[in-house]
C-alpha cells in the first residue's frame, strides 16, 4: 500500500490500466508462444515457428503485424455495428475479469468483498459478444456457432459457479484476496505445513471448475461453437484482419485469466509454501506475480494439452454432461463442504 498511497487517484488508475493491459497481453502472448507454438508442435512432432527471433519467439509479433495489414472485411449483409463491436465485447469481458485477480498482498486492481461474484458476473458477458458475432455476421455457420456457444456457455456457467461456492464456503469470504490469505493460513485437519491450497480439500470442485472452464473457453473437447471441421470456424468465420486477431488474442487471454482465477481459488493464488521464507508483504509483492504466472502456465498447459488431444463432443452430449453429471456433483460437493464447515 505504501507506494500506491502516495500517488493521486488518476496516477493509480493509469498504473492499474497499464498493469492490466500488460498483465493480460503479455501473459496471453506467453501462452500463445509456449503452448500453441511450442508445446503443441512438440506433441505433433513438428518444430513450430523457428524463423522470427530466437526459436521463433517473435512469431506472435510478426502475426500481429500481418493481421494489422489485412483488410477488415465486412460481409455485405452483416449488421455492421454489431459485427464490428463483437470482438471488443469479448475482450472487455476478459479485461474486466482480470481486475478481480490479486497478484500480491498489495498488487491488486480492485479489492472487493464480492470479488469472485463480480468475476463470475463479468465473465458471462463474453456470451453476448459471441452471440453478437454469430448474429452480426449474416452467415448460417456463424449463427449456428453463436447459438451453440450461447447454449453451451449458459449450461457451463452453472457448474462453474457451483464449484466456486464450495471454495467460498470453505474460505468464508468472497474476497479474492481473502481466499488467498485463507489458503495461506489454512490448515488441513489441523496440519498447516503447506497451508491449505483448496485443490486438496476441494479436489472435486477443482475438477468441475477445470472442465467447466474448458467449456467456457470453447476449447476442445467442447469447441463445437468453433468446430473448424463442421462449422468452419463458427462465429469467427467472417472475421478477418484486426478483428480476427482480437478474437484470437481474446481466446488465449481468456484462457490465461480463467487460469489465474482457478489458481487463486484452488492453488493459493500469488502465495506459495516456500520453506524458510518469512512472511513479508514486500517480498510477496515481488514474488507474487511470478508465482501466479507460473501457476497460470501450468493450468493453461493442462487446458491446451486437453485441447489438442481430445475429439469434440456433440452439442447434445455436452449438454447432457453438464446437466446430468457436473451440476449434481457440484451440488453434492456444496452439501458435503457445508457439513464439514459447520460440524467439523
Amino acid at each position: 500500500m505504501s507506494l500506491l498511497a502516495e500517488l493521486s487517484y488518476w496516477q493509480q488508475t493509469s498504473l492499474r490500466v497499464v498493469g492490466g493491459l500488460a498483465g493480460v497481453l503479455l501473459v496471453a502472448g506467453t501462452l500463445v508462444y509456449l503452448h500453441l507454438f511450442k508445446m503443441v508442435s512438440f506433441m505433433q512432432s513438428r518444430l513450430g515457428p523457428m524463423e522470427a527471433g530466437p526459436f521463433g519467439s517473435l512469431q506472435l509479433l510478426a502475426e500481429v503485424g500481418k493481421h494489422l495489414q489485412k483488410e477488415d472485411i465486412f460481409p455485405r449483409k452483416a449488421d455492421k455495428f454489431v459485427f464490428a463491436a463483437a470482438p471488443f465485447v469479448i475482450l472487455a469481458s476478459t479485461f474486466l475479469l482480470v481486475v478481480v485477480v490479486p497478484a500480491g498482498p498489495d498488487a491488486w486492481f480492485i479489492n472487493n468483498d464480492v470479488g469472485i461474484y463480480l468475476g463470475m458476473a463479468v465473465s458471462s458477458v463474453s456470451v453476448i459478444g459471441i452471440l453478437m458475432a454469430g448474429w452480426g455476421s449474416a452467415n448460417k455457420y456463424s449463427l449456428l456457432g453463436g447459438l451453440r456457444a450461447t447454449g453451451q456457455l449458459i449450461a457451463y456457467e452453472l457448474p462453474l459457479i457451483l464449484a466456486v461456492v464450495g471454495v467460498v464456503i470453505q474460505a468464508g469470504t468472497m474476497n479474492m484476496q481473502g481466499i488467498v490469505i485463507a489458503q495461506a493460513e489454512g490448515e488441513i485437519f489441523g496440519w498447516g505445513g503447506i497451508g491449505n491450497p483448496y485443490i486438496l480439500t476441494q479436489g472435486v470442485a477443482f475438477m468441475i471448475f477445470m472442465i467447466a472452464m474448458q467449456a467456457e473457453l470453447t476449447q476442445a473437447p467442447f469447441d463445437m461453437p468453433i468446430a473448424e471441421s463442421e462449422l468452419v470456424s463458427g462465429y469467427m468465420t467472417e472475421y478477418s484482419g484486426m478483428r480476427f486477431l482480437l478474437f484470437f488474442i481474446g481466446e488465449f487471454a481468456t484462457a490465461g485469466v480463467f487460469a489465474s482465477v482457478a489458481s487463486v481459488l484452488f492453488l493459493g493464488g500469488w502465495w506459495a509454501p516456500i520453506p524458510g521464507l518469512e512472511w513479508d508483504d514486500n517480498t510477496w509483492n515481488l514474488l507474487g506475480p511470478i508465482v501466479l504466472i507460473t501457476k497460470i502456465v501450468i493450468l493453461t498447459f493442462i487446458v491446451f494439452w486437453v485441447r489438442f488431444t481430445f475429439p469434440r463432443f456433440r452439442e447434445d452430449q455436452l449438454q447432457r454432461l453438464a446437466w446430468k453429471f457436473l451440476i449434481p456433483i457440484a451440488l453434492a460437493n456444496i452439501v458435503v463442504t457445508a457439513i464439514f464447515k459447520v460440524w467439523i
Binding site: 503443441v40 506433441m43 505433433q44 512432432s45 513438428r46 476442445a220 473437447p221 469447441d223 468446430a227 471441421s229 489438442f308 488431444t309 481430445f310 475429439p311 469434440r312
Partner: peptide
C-alpha cells in the same frame, strides 16, 4: 477421421 471429430493431433502423426 480424428480431425473430423475434432482432435487435430493424430493427423500429424499420420502425415509423419
Amino acid at each position: 477421421m480424428a480431425v473430423q471429430v475434432g482432435a487435430v493431433t493424430p493427423v500429424f502423426f499420420a502425415f509423419r
